[in-house]
Amino acid sequence: MPRSRHSDALRAAQMYYLQDLTMDAIARELRTSRSTVSRLLSSARDTGLVQVQIRSPLDSAPELERMIREQHNVDVHVVPVLDTLNEAETLDRVAMQAARTIGPLVDSNAIIGIAWGATISAVSRHLTRKITHDSIVVQLNGAGNMQTTGITYASDIMRRFGIAYGARVEQFPVPAFFDHASTKTAMWKERSVRRVLDLQDRMSIAIFGVGSVDSSYPSHVYAGGYLDENDLKLLAGSDVVGDVATVFFRADGSSDGITLNERSTGPSHEQLRQVRRRICVVSGASKIDGLRGALAARLATDLIVDEATARRLVGFGDSA
């Protein structure tokens, strides 16, 4: 929003929510129309100036959040979702909440690392604009494979984040996996690649989903032609349960000895754990094994998750 409209939206929100004035009274005070006041209040909600909280004694989300914080040491937002929704509908609800949660965390001069995938693609479609200055959105892992460069898919996600936060976008034009570890070693010495890697090293926020081998809503890395039959056998032989930014891990969070990681272009778990704010977005109870592995690896500081998955995570209630 332009600064003057931002100021008007803030003033209208304060009068409406804090002073209990009607929209007609606000319109008279601001010398504008009632419909303009309605649009200002909508803008205040959409841009995060106003955040609505509903506290119900029947709501289990706060208790789930407390249990997850205690068990896994993460800040968590549990998204209430009806069990009657399918996984695509659940993902859309979680993505909407994630977009609203992420916005206030993004400040000027931020370097925001984004791992492409179905979940973060959904999040990118719900982002609302926020004015920042000198911020950068950097792609965390390459997106090419034997069938496609992956540029269109990944760049669309990066572009939406860049537009939302007025940030410069830095793509990572390498494959998701090199054919040989030696090729990766050589490429990582190239100055054009090192420039992107240096930005990743200075990230202040990383945003990612969790890929899961057994998810009923297939993760893009498993369904998009990135892994051949031999790769899948290697993962099964290493007891892999999931990945973050195409770097794989087991149920206990370990990743040592997983040979495919030597060819992956995503950041190592050690590198990711150096980022101050690491926001993990997960939708769908079928991703529970991948989520548990990611939390065991301490890859997230913040978790946004649907209620059914949260229940399974802590063994809460009838869904345990």
Rank of each mutant, 00 (worst) to 15 (best):
F178S: 04
K233H: 08
G253R: 04
A251F: 08
G209Y: 01
H269K: 06
E262Y: 07
R168H: 14
D228G: 10
G257F: 12
I288Y: 11
T259I: 15
S216L: 13
G237M: 08
D243C: 09
E170V: 14
P267L: 12
R276E: 15
T265H: 05
W188D: 09
L260E: 08
A206W: 02
E270S: 13
L227H: 05
G225W: 04
E170F: 11
G242L: 07
S204R: 06
A181G: 13
S286L: 02
A176I: 08
Q271G: 02
R202C: 08
G290W: 01
R277H: 12
R273E: 00
I279N: 04
E170W: 05
S215E: 13
V244F: 02
S204N: 14
S268Y: 05
D228V: 12
R250T: 06
G211E: 06
M203Y: 12
T185D: 12
Y217R: 11
V241W: 05
V221T: 13
H220Y: 10
R277N: 15
F249E: 00
V169Y: 03
R277M: 14
K189M: 10
V281R: 01
P267D: 03
V275G: 01
S204T: 15
D289T: 11
I207C: 06
D179P: 09
R168T: 15
K189L: 11
G242F: 05
C280F: 05
R276T: 15
D214R: 12
L272T: 05
S283I: 01
L227A: 08
R276Y: 09
F178V: 03
F249N: 06
S215T: 12
P175W: 03
V221G: 01
D256W: 13
P173R: 11
A245G: 07
R276A: 14
W188Y: 14
L227G: 10
E262A: 12
S254A: 13
G253L: 05
F178K: 07
R195D: 14
S255P: 04
L235Y: 06
A245K: 01
V210G: 05
R263Q: 11
H269M: 15
H269T: 04
C280W: 02
V221L: 15
I205C: 04
F208C: 07
E262G: 05
P218N: 02
T183E: 10
Y226A: 03
R202G: 06
V244G: 10
